[in-house]
Design a protein around this nucleic acid. Structure first.
Lengths: 248, 248
DNA sequence: CGACGTATTGACTCGGCTCAAAACCTGTGG
DNA sequence: CCACAGGTTTTGAGCCGAGTCAATACGTCG
């Protein structure tokens, strides 16, 4: 009796979260129900590992809040940050297409809430259900495109431009001008995410400040001239400014 | 009469090529037939463009021979080489998942033969046919994985290591030791492919030669000690040597 | 053989890394 | 409210890897 009661209390919010996801929204209700039933709410403290590279993939995750770092580690201990994801992103799902092995690790860099779902279920759903396969295709393709831009940016933008690019992607171009935004996570993490050391980040951000109109106070950045910034950044990039859907 | 005869002559080799592709092999014969009918053999001279970034995607291509460069260009004329593909690879297919716009350009860097197929047909096949969607998922996911490694390699391997990594991926680890291989395309292209200038490539290759046992004569490379080379390279990478399926 | 494209070498500059020290938060407990 | 400890960020000095520009060598094809 008590069991059923708790089950109900848990399932309602989980169902709501899953339904907000394109992957689950298109599903037949019965199929979706199997996911909802198998889903588990998780709260993760700062630093905890969701999974490691080369792990057998048992679960995939829908992030609800907080930032998660996706990374790989080399033999001699160096780390490359592949991506940072949060709120509304699925991670670990792509392992089911790669022999069930995670090709990168994932760690919470702050308190994170997530929904954990069994990989086997997703694998089954993709083989059985055409709509699910299509949704998966869409998400993978967005991923691919994003990564292409990443490669481009690493090869032909310098440190300041990469930072500027990062800031631009946080901007909503429709908001009126003196535009204020807060850095989403630690500067050292942004640095790693952009493929540079934090010392370099600090210096390059200063350079960006002197070469464009830009004010920085702690983790709050104020941009007074978007066009100037995008001129500085996007000349070394293949997309022009409102470079939409590159962070979705 | 003559028409039918030529049609037969053309279709037989095209059919054979398509059937060797995972994407088409799983298809129902009738569906595959529509592709075979719409397919066109192409021979492209060095330098010709298959498509450009931001082009409306009308066609996708199966490369049969020769090397094709995938690239993006920045506003101020710089170019990043995303990938080099040849023999047995599909290109331009992923545009159908991205509003039908190519997110990179493709150009032949030497004489190329390819089969050209209409994108609309593939788009239809994916929406209608589950098997095709799954094949597409598989290929996209391989792509994604490859790109992750690309990012890793750009951020944490230096020039010599990236070259060594490139060489290792050309090696068959089962072949007995004094191992000889020929660079697949111009050194300047390899340099671009690895995100460095050709002068840097030249110097870094020299460095690699002095620091490992390795002989270079023009475009012929002889590796006498694979383990030594992989030790030098893979310490700064998250996969160990026989890093399979990273070039398929 | 000469001519053109590709590759190498040299001298120099500059961006980003390293290591170490200082400054700055932020939260804790007295 | 202050002082202090812990982390994060910034600054400084020096170094090294990779880019630039220009000159030279190499290869190959006519």
């Amino acid at each position: 009796m008590a069991q059923i009661a708790t089950a109900y209390r848990d399932e309602a919010p989980i169902a709501a979260h899953l339904e907000s996801q394109p992957l689950f929204r298109g599903m037949a209700p019965e199929l979706r129900a199997t996911f909802i039933q198998a889903a588990q709410m998780q709260t993760l403290s700062k630093g905890s590992i969701l999974f490691l590279q080369d792990d057998e993939s048992e679960w995939f995750y829908l992030i609800l809040s907080g930032w998660v770092k996706l990374f790989t580690e080399t033999m001699d201990g160096d780390e490359a940050v592949i991506d940072m994801v949060s709120n509304g992103h699925l991670i670990g799902d792509s392992a089911i297409l790669e022999d069930g092995i995670h090709s990168f690790g994932a760690a919470a860099v702050e308190p994170v809430t997530a929904i954990r779902l069994p990989s086997s279920l997703l694998k089954q759903a993709i083989t059985d259900d055409h709509k699910t396969a299509l949704a998966m295709l869409g998400s993978l393709s967005r991923h691919r495109k994003r990564q292409s831009r990443e490669i481009e940016s690493l090869t032909l933008q310098n440190a300041s431009q990469r930072i500027g690019c990062f800031l631009l992607r946080l901007c909503n171009p429709d908001v009126p001008m003196p535009l204020t935004l807060t850095l989403p996570y630690d500067k050292s993490l942004i640095a790693a995410r952009l493929g540079m050391k934090s010392e370099t980040f600090s210096r390059a951000l200063n350079k960006l400040r002197t070469e464009t109109t830009l004010a920085i106070k702690g983790s709050v950045v104020t941009i007074s001239d978007l066009d100037e910034l995008s001129g500085y950044v996007c000349s070394a990039c293949s997309n022009e400014f409102p470079c939409r859907d590159l962070h979705s």
